[in-house]
Design a protein around this nucleic acid. Structure first.
Length: 424
RNA sequence: GGACGGGUGGCCGAGUGGUUUAAGGCGCACGCCUGGAAAGUGUGUGUACGUGACAGCGUACCGAGGGUUCGAAUCCCUCCCCGUCCGCCA
């Protein structure tokens, strides 16, 4: 969410940001309406407050006269009239403020300057690590996994529906191994605090991180309750400090959390849906950081490196992609995607997405910090990134490490966690 | 799920319709005192919005929302959360 003030002194900047996202045409009417509403709003505030000041003075005089046993009937009648007028004006003001608020919640974050303009065709590969294995003669992960008996797509579909999977035996154990490996590295080497959080959250949390109100169709809700299944641990972890004031001296703060993630993926039907490529439920270890505005760029790089480190330890070739403005999420100001190479399907698969949200989420969720004693509170910057998401990573692991006999060589770093050096 | 008791400023805590424009304390800041410090002592110290010269002025905020009233932290209603006990339960 943006400050009201962008609609007064940064409208041009706002318009140009929307243009870079390719959304100016769609959002221009909203922006224009917002600018007008801001002016109206201020005029109404002045009208209401002027009358309230009069009422307060009137009330004091009534109190004084009552105490002195003087007649106050006229003043009381005036007060009643004022009260009615105030109620009417306040209602108008409330209507305007709600509309303005709704507009501000709709507008996406401003992309940072270095983010390329345009849609996903303008995404920029910033670097590549490792040698992508040639795909000739290699099988896709779903064939490998089902042959090994570690993935049961049919029964997942039977129990829940398409897009839900069952992992079995070493497949199930592989998920548990990845969770432990990732979290151990982040807590022991990267300085994160491990948290275990609810995967059902309330509406305020979903609004805080930006999933609502705009993307309700993509979220699973709980019938009869105003609760939602988390699409990512970003939601509960970022909302840990919603409506709180942190001390500047304790920033940056870093959290890592494993959760299952639930997404309807509405509108994505038929696109990259085979095997483990796109699921309604998947597992992910997520990193979340709270920083000062001054720290956030460095912390964004550090967080992204924390995710890359895991891919390097696993020996999986990957590339880092800077998303163009039009491909950057609603709440994000800049996003790096990490894509690992899946030779069996011949594609780079997104296994991590590392974003800085600047103060966009912090303003929605009201997360502030006090830089120092006596100083004004400021909004923190929030950042997060997957470190890492399991299903596509498993796809890459299986495809990259597959042997001619269909077995899978387990990368060194995982062996202690998985208890074997080969899956057969 | 039921009964009872609670939600007040960074923290603790008074306050059941009009000098509360929230007492008092802690913490914090600055000053005095001191050889220096502690103790003591004085002053100050919330957030948001509006306006304006970063002075000041105004308005709102005592869990959230609504109601009664000339006037609500205070009375009424609904909801949320916390505590204690009971019930149910992995």
């Amino acid at each position: 969410m943006h400050d009201f003030r962008v609609l007064r002194d940064q409208v041009d900047q706002l318009r140009s940001a929307m243009r870079r996202r390719g959304k100016l045409e769609a959002l221009a009417p909203l922006i224009d309406r917002g600018v007008a509403l801001d002016v109206e709003r201020r005029a109404m505030i002045q009208a209401v407050e002027e009358r309230k000041a009069t009422r307060n003075a009137n009330t004091q005089e009534v109190a004084r006269r009552k105490k002195a046993r003087e007649n106050a009937d006229t003043l009381i009648a005036q007060g009643r009239a004022l009260g009615e007028e105030i109620a009417r004006l306040e209602e108008e003001l409330q209507v305007a403020e709600r509309e303005l608020q709704a507009i501000l919640l709709e507008l996406p974050n401003l992309p940072l300057d270095e983010v390329p303009e345009g849609d996903e065709t303008q995404n920029r590969v910033e670097k590549t690590w490792g040698e992508p294995r040639p795909g000739a003669g290699l099988k896709p992960h779903w064939e490998l996994a089902e042959a090994l008996g570690i993935l049961d797509l049919a029964r997942g579909a039977k129990v829940s529906g398409s897009g839900f999977i069952v992992l079995r035996g070493m497949g199930a154990r592989l998920s548990r191994a990845l969770m432990n490996f990732f979290i151990d590295v982040h807590t022991r080497e990267h300085g994160y605090e491990e948290v275990w959080v609810p995967v059902v959250v309330n509406r305020a949390s979903m609004v805080g991180t930006g999933q609502l109100p705009k993307f309700e169709d993509d979220m699973y809700g709980v019938a009869g309750e105003d609760l939602f299944l988390v699409p990512t641990a970003e939601v509960p972890v970022t909302n840990l400090y919603r409506d709180e004031m942190l001390e500047g001296s304790e920033l940056p703060r870093s959290f890592v959390s494993y959760t299952p993630c639930f997404r309807k993926e509405a509108g994505a039907a038929g696109k990259d849906t085979r095997g483990l490529l796109r699921l309604h439920q998947f597992d992910k270890v997520e990193m979340v950081r709270y920083t000062t505005p001054e720290q956030s760029a460095d912390e964004h790089e550090r967080l992204t490196r924390n995710a890359e480190t895991l891919l390097e330890r696993l020996g999986l070739p990957y590339r880092r992609v800077l998303l163009a403005a039009g491909d950057t999420g609603q709440s994000s100001a800049k996003t790096w995607d990490l894509e690992a190479w899946a030779p069996g399907v011949g594609k780079w698969l997104e296994v991590s997405s590392c974003s800085t949200f600047t103060d966009y989420q912090a303003r929605r969720a009201n997360i502030r910090y006090r830089p120092g004693t006596g100083e004004k509170p400021r909004f923190v910057h929030t950042l997060n990134g997957s470190g890492l998401a399991f299903p596509r990573l498993i796809a890459c692991l299986l495809e990259h490490y597959q042997q001619p006999d269909g077995s899978i060589t387990v990368p060194e770093a995982l062996r202690a966690f998985l208890g074997t050096d080969v899956i057969r």
